[in-house]
Each structure stands twice: as C-alpha cells, then as structure tokens.
Design a binder for these strands. Sequence first.
DNA 1: ATCGACCGCCTTTTT
DNA 2: GGCGGTCGAT
Length: 767
Amino acid sequence: MKKFDFKSELNEEQYEAVTWEYSPSVVIAGAGSGKTRVITYRIAYLLNNGVNAINILGLTFTNKAANEMKERIAALIDNERVTRYLMLGTFHSVFNKILRREAGVLGYNSDYTIYSPEDAYILIREIVSSMGLDNKKYDYRAVYKRISYLKNYMYTPERYLANDDLIRNDKINKIGNFVDVYEQYEKKKKANNAMDFDDLLLNTYFLLKKHEDIREKYKNLYGHILVDEFQDTNIVQYEITKLLAGKDDDIMVVGDDAQSIYSFRGANLQNVYSFIREYKAKKFLLKRNYRSTQHIVQASNSLINKNKEQIKKEVYSLKGYGNKILIKETEFDSEEAEFVAKDIKSRLYLERKEYKDFAVLYRTNSQSRKIEEALRRENIPYRVYGGTSFYNRKEIKDVLAYLTFLINPDDTVSFKRIVNFPKRGIGDSSVAKIFDYMTQTGKSLSEALNELDRIPLPARSKKQLNDFLSGLNKFFADLDSVSVATLTKELTQRFGIQEYLKSQNEEEKAANVDELINSMADFEAAAAEMEEGQETVDVTVKAYLESVSLITDLDSDDEEDNKVRIMTVHTAKGLEFPTVYIVGAEENYFPISQSKDSQDRINEERRLFYVAMTRAMENLIITYSKVRYQYNNIDYRNPSRFLKDLPTGHIIFEGTGNLFDNNYRQERTTAETYFSNKRSETKSKVSQKPAVAPSKENLKKINSRITTEIDQYGNIKPGTRAKHEKFGIGTVEKLLGNPPDTRAIINFETQGQKTLLLKYARLIVLG
DNA sequence: ATCGACCGCCTTTTT
DNA sequence: GGCGGTCGAT
C-alpha cells in the first residue's frame, strides 16, 4: 500500500479530523471545505493503519458521491482492488444489500422487487378502487406521499391506528379510510414480494432492532462507520446508525447544518446536535472554503447568518475577490431565459469557457422548460437532470417490467404493466378476475397463474393468457444462463414490442427500447471491465435490475460531457461549477410560496439558497423576472427576500429602479394572494402531513374564499370590458372570492349575465 | 376491449 | 399549456 504524508496534503483542521482516534466524531464541513476529502482520506488512513476494508461502512445520499469517493480512495491508496471490499454506497443501496441477504427473516424472498413511486402508484390506485373509495379524495400521489412521510417517522399502520388523534382527524377530514389504505398497501406489497424506497430503510431498522443476532453480526462487521451529509438523515437513518454503532465505536459523521434541505422527506437537522450530545462526539469545524472566490463566500455567509440556530462558523476563502455577484432583473420570464442563454454565449468567448463550466439552477423542475427553449434557440448544448429520467419513461418501465416479472412472478404491478402490452386483448376485467381469485383463495400471483383453469375467464382471454405465459417460459429458463442484453433483445422480438410501438406511430418510443438494450450492452461491457481478472462476471438480468433500480439521472453523469447543466438546487447539492445562474429568485418561487407561513420552512429555503450560491466557483449570476406567465395568467413578481441579505459591496445590480427600494415589499400582488390562499385548497384531500383539526381561522379563510368581494384579479377589475370565446363581449360587474378561485359576474352584450371561474375562462381584456 | 375526446389538475424539493 | 385519467361510443 502506498505510503503518503497526510500532514502535507491536508490543512490542519482536516488533518486533525482524518487522524482522530477510533471514537465518535462529527465533522461540520462548510461549503467547499473539503468534506469529501476528509472522508476519503479518513478511509485511506484506516486502511493504512491496517484496518480491513470489509470492516468499513460508508453511507452517502447519492450514488455519485459514493462512486466519486471510491475512485478517489482507489487513487489515494493506489489499489483499486481494495476499494471493492469497502461497503460504500447510498443508504438505500447498502441497506438493500443487507436486506437481500436477510430477507427470509422478514418474511420476504431475496428476489424481492424494489418499487419506484410510479410502481407504488399503481398498487395504491388498485387498492383505493377495490375499496370503493373516492379517488379524488384518496389521490394516489397524495396517499403515497403521506405514507412515505409517515414511514420516515417510523409510523407503521399499527402505530397509526393506535393514535386516536390521527384517526379522529382523518374522520373530520373525511379521509377516515386512509389508514385502511395504508394497511392494505403494506399487505399487498408484501404479498407481491416488493419493497418501496422507504421500506429499504424501515425494514432494515426492524431487522436490526428485532433480531439481536443479526444486529450483533453487522455491528461487529462494521467496526468503522462514516456517514456523509448527516444533516439530511431522517429519524430512521439515525436510529439505524445508533443500532450499528455503540457510544465508544469508531463512527464519524460529516455534514453541514447550514445545508440541511430535505426536511420534507423527514430529514432532521436536530440529528446533528443529538449526535454530538448522545455520542459525546469530538467536534471538528472545517471553515476554509477552497471552492469559491471571496465575494461569493462572504455574500453567502451574510445570507446564512440570518439563520439563528446554526453551529456558528464563519467560512472564509483565501482566493481573490473575483467578480461581484450579478443580480439581473428582467421584465418578463422569456427575457430572463434569453438573458441566461446569451450571457452563457458571451462568457464562452470572453472568458474562454466551455459549456460544461455552466450550470443553471432553479427551485422547481417546471422552471426548466423556458430555460431549455432559450438554450435551444441559441444552439447551446445542455443536459437536464432530474425531472423525468430515461428509466421513468413508460415504454422503458414496461420493458423492464417484463424482466422484473421474470425475477419475481408474484409481482402484480409488473404483471399488470405487461399482461396487455403490447395489446393482446386481456383487459382490466380479466386481470380483476385473477386478482379476485387471489383474494378469495389467498394464493399468490404465480400460484394463480398456474391454475388458470380454475378462474372463470372468457375463453378468448384464457387463450391469450396462456399464449402469453408460455411465451415467457423460455425466458424463465434463460434467466441464469443468458446475459441481460441478449435476453431482452430476444424477448422484445418475441413479443414484438418495437414493432408494436412503431405500428402505433411511436417511433421514438421504439428507439428508446433499442437504446435500453444498448445500455444493457454497456452495462455488460462495464461489468466485464470492472471484474477483469475475477472469476465470474455477473451480467444476468438480476444483476442488471439490481443496478438500475436505485440509480438516478445524476449517477450517469459524464463529467467530460461538454454541455451546460440545468437542474434543481436540490439536485445540485454537492456539485460545483465555475459559473452558476440561479434563476427565478422571486418571492413565491424562492422562497417557495408554500413555505412562507412558517419560520422553520423559510429557514430551510434560506439554507437552500445558500446551497445554490455556494455551488459557484467564480461567477454567480442571480436573476429574477418582474412578470411571469403561468397557467394563462399574468403574475407580478417581487424579488426574493434573500437578495436583501446580500451586502451591497458584493453585488452588482442590473435592473430598473433600486433593488433595495422597500416599496416593492409593501404591495401585495395578485400572485401573492393566489399563493397564500393555495394552502387551504387541498383540505378535503389526503395531504402529506397528517392533519390536525382545522382551526376556526382556517375555516374563516376557506369561507372567505367563496364570498369575499375583491377588487382586482390580474388585470381584471369591475368595469373591465373583456371578450369570451363563447359568450362574446361583456363588462365585469363583480369579482367574488380570492384567487385562484375568483369568480366574475359578467354582463355579456348578447348572452346576458354569467358567472365565470376566472382561472378557466379565457378572457381577453379589451382596451 | 379499445379508441378517441374531453376534462381536470397541475407545480416543491428526492433516494 | 401539457399530461394523465375518465368516460362514452363502437
């Protein structure tokens, strides 16, 4: 193993942390302060000291982070083989490995399927409809969100049922059957031999909690634990680390409380403080930022210092001051996008940059479209991260469902996807008959399919089903002996998938399926390369599915790919770029409207803005638009309150008037009224957070939405003359109810008086 | 069982 | 302004 001088390659704080004794420690690492460096050197340090690689457990949040660490460690110790024995990966993937091994104990088969949210949606819809519930109230996305939220807080259906308040509130909110849906979901999922993302965490917790022998096994195995981004761990993750690491064990958690941005999925900033307290952890502060210039570091410090409950640390940079932060105001959203595109072009030449040196960050995925359009117009190559990834496309999910079903023939979700794809005349009613049979007999899907004769199906469906199943037989037999690319190619040919898609004029989808098969071939090539010199190379369907079920868009990033990156701020965490644009720096976008009523959430928005700013190495450009077109409406926007927290000395403002003119904050725009009322809109539906009884104030708010007379909606006021495509020209009499549910009473010249819901009526204002 | 037309909701962030 | 879901017609 390569010997190297830790002292000369690390600064003093980093060195102290890396060489700390084998006892609990926490590294609070400011943005750009070499957090990854500390973790990788710490692991190298352990290996150098004779620690066996198999005894090291490293947990991250993204595969990208894990892979980067592996690469860096391999380079450090100059021994790639050793890194293969490290258990270093995301929480989800590491726990998945453990669960596969121990599945039997939990009543699972080790070939269980991992459900993406989209898979879970299918199951939830099925449950809601089979229980005869209203699918508007029990919206599948909302139900899934809430179940996920509950699981992050370790609220199982049993625990939920035991909580009278929750049950009572559900009844009040007319979603009294929520807990039944939750229960059924868990039950069916298990019968399908499937786990969702949250189960990977929660089941690991129960596995270790309830089975002392297994807990001891892993506790002894992983004598050295490192956890990355600890500020974003949720309760379950924290409890699991507690089960794996005793108070005297070697556990190092690394993170930055100033960058905690995942509370919506249960991340608990308090975990950092609890860890320090409970483990009496040695605390290290990394304050020197190696990434950004002074203007950027100092301005972002000013912003984050507005959050009071932080571990105090002033991050500093020894780089030059560099360019000031540019705050650019535009009149319209289209102009904002155009500015970004043109600015990238000019910097490309003036600063001799490459496309990949630029990133455009926004708060919500839906903002990407306008940016994309502008970049395309300027012929700028770009790549969007997040949103709908390749593996989320329907045709891809359908083909993968064939493979999933081959591995796990008890999975009703995959079965449903493929049984009538391509169309072969097996409709919902036939599928329902099979499911009914399963419910009545308590048999699993694979058992039911083996006794089709006992299920009362129309002769035609039965024949088609039998053909379908016998077509699959060959592939069951091939699973272990044929590689995934070959098998999938044959399978798609056998079932005529591309042909079918082409016949539907879905050329692009057919091409995507071909592309999927190509990527499988890439997977095989990569596996062969990685395992070079190893005895076996695993390129089976099972190995492939394992590798794709937990990957995301970002993981397939090729850093050399010379394109502009565009993504949400959440996705950008942990990344850095020479030039960064933060677009849509407006009230209601950033901070987002839904967070305005709670100080905690505003604080989280501020941390998010801090994360966005600190991605930039040299240039930071923040843009906002005064007017934005949304859902056929004009929104008048105010600059983000966070811009006010950036000291004038670090910024250049380009826009009309004065950014720090307080006037803009006093006027309450239609947009603000719209958004601030939005919260009460979803009342009757399942919402993510278990509801408390509506307060009197809320009721008042809801009522006022319907009856209050208001004097303006966008550019429409009483007296406004407007044209409607059906009713013709009319004059607005009255506006009733707060946006977005404002109704207008309009006297039409030819059709008389009508009441129209303005968000849907496409009125053209005249004069 | 399938297709086409319309309707409604969307827009917070993710492993 | 887009997508997915639902419903009615064949």
